[in-house]
């Protein structure tokens, strides 16, 4: 059973076919990369999966269960979590509270369920995520006081703190310098080696070729190609669409 499966998914906004008949799957433990030029429907596909955009038609299943019509907050409780293309941190909360916010949305915040002096499960998950993304030093800072790359790491930590079974990352290294990209790539590899399934949207094809087990290429809202990353990236139609040249 696939962790995530999209079957003939269409998202139309009036006459605009943002996503038009896309089908692919993410298997358990797999890291799937998704590439495509600007406007090719990558983010809309993720929005459809996370119910931020309504499906026009098609079906999306998560661990075999149809999630095409469930409300967004239910998806997180099932283990399907995303990050966004733009940074979306809550400015009035500290770094730790931004991460804790996500960790405590499963009912574990109820203090009477844990003994005196014991740490809440949500706090444990939050601190583990902060540690994994090397954010313990800045946990009490306001997000706005942090460099861009660190804010990106906070977003990933927030997603991780939910204990996801599938992580959808929308351009996780956008705007980062090379060192920061390598750092995030190492984190993603590490998470994937722990068995976490991931769908990563990224413009950095080199990064995806290094990380992913499977590559999905979109163009004009349609599935252009998918398969083994290096072979898929080498296809003439992919090079034409992505690089503007088949050479």
């Amino acid at each position: 059973m696939s962790r995530l499966e999209l079957q003939d998914v269409r998202v139309h906004f009036g006459g605009v076919k943002a996503v038009d008949g896309v089908s692919f799957a993410v298997e358990p433990g797999q890291l799937v990369g998704m590439v495509g030029p600007n406007g090719s429907g990558k983010s809309t596909t993720v929005n459809a999966v996370t119910r931020t955009a309504d499906l026009t038609s098609g079906r999306i299943t998560f661990d075999g269960e149809d999630v095409s019509t469930v409300r967004p907050h239910v998806l997180r409780r099932k283990g399907l979590v995303r990050t966004f293309q733009g940074i979306r941190l809550i400015p009035e909360l500290s770094v730790r509270d931004n991460v804790r916010l996500a960790a405590e949305q499963d009912g574990s915040r109820r203090r009477w369920r844990v003994g005196r002096g014991e740490k809440l499960p949500s706090d444990t998950a939050c601190d583990a995520a902060l540690e994994r993304l090397d954010l313990l030093d800045v946990r009490d800072e306001a997000p706005s006081a942090l460099p861009y790359g660190t804010q990106r790491r906070v977003e990933i930590a927030r997603a991780l703190a939910t204990g996801p079974r599938l992580l959808l990352l929308d351009e996780p290294v956008a705007g980062m310098n090379r060192a920061e990209r390598e750092e995030i790539a190492a984190v993603l590899t590490d998470l994937n080696s722990d068995g976490l399934s991931m769908l990563v949207i990224e413009h950095d094809l080199r990064l995806l070729l290094a990380l992913s087990d499977h590559l999905v290429v979109l163009n004009f809202g349609r599935l252009l190609a998918q398969g083994e990353p290096a072979a898929t990236a080498a296809l003439p139609e992919v090079r034409q669409a992505y690089l503007g040249s088949a050479a």
Binding site: H73, E92, L93, L101
Partner: peptide
């Protein structure tokens, strides 16, 4: 914290489980 997130960004808060 949920309320603060909700006021700032409904889409984000729903995505983290609010």
């Amino acid at each position: 914290r949920s309320i603060a997130a909700l006021r700032h960004d409904e889409v984000l808060s729903a995505s983290v489980g609010v």
